[in-house]
């Protein structure tokens, strides 16, 4: 996709979002006889209108840019990078669940170890240094957040 087309597409998406916001703001309560600007929905509606205008301008700006601009910045340089990205997202999403069931130190240790493992070069993985760094970092987190700051983390099965 060219940059131009992407900008046009994004402009339309924001326009649609502004429309949704405008409609949603219409369901907010209004006070009879008061000053319109004081109603709950006034400000969201105002923002929706501004966003709609800006997104139209964005589309116009993109159209006027001629067919100059090159290809869009790629989302993933390689297939491996895309896989890494997906893997990181999965780890992030799992983190709060693991934290809740097992405790924050366990969650952090698993997170750091698996991500470091994946980010290391396949031919140059040093398990010992990965484990040392992961455990060390987890200990640092534990010392800072649990021992010094005494943050009340969820009471998991482990720590």
């Amino acid at each position: 996709m060219t940059k131009k087309n992407l900008d046009i597409l994004v402009g339309f998406i924001f326009f649609a979002f502004a429309g949704l916001l405008f409609i949603a703001a219409g369901f907010m309560p209004t006070r009879e006889g008061g000053i319109p600007a004081l109603n709950t929905g006034f400000y969201p509606r105002l923002l929706a209108i501004i966003l709609a205008v800006l997104s139209v301008l964005m589309v116009l700006e993109a159209v006027r840019k001629q067919a100059d601009s090159g290809q869009v910045e790629v989302w993933w340089t390689t297939k491996a990078a895309m896989f890494m990205f997906a893997f990181t997202i999965v780890l992030l999403v799992l983190y709060p669940f693991v934290m809740k069931t097992f405790g924050f130190a366990t969650a952090s240790l698993l997170f750091i170890t698996s991500l470091t493992w994946m980010l290391s070069d396949k031919n140059n993985r040093k398990p010992v240094s990965i484990i040392i760094v992961s455990v060390g970092l987890t200990a640092l987190l534990y010392i800072i957040f649990k021992m010094i700051l005494a943050i009340p983390f969820p009471h998991g099965m482990l720590i």
Partner: peptide, 23 residues
Amino acid sequence: KKFLIPAILVFGLVGSYAISNSL
């Protein structure tokens, strides 16, 4: 970076929790 990225992410995760002690 293989160490730096996980470290930054995990500090972000734990720090976010600690703002109001909420998942």
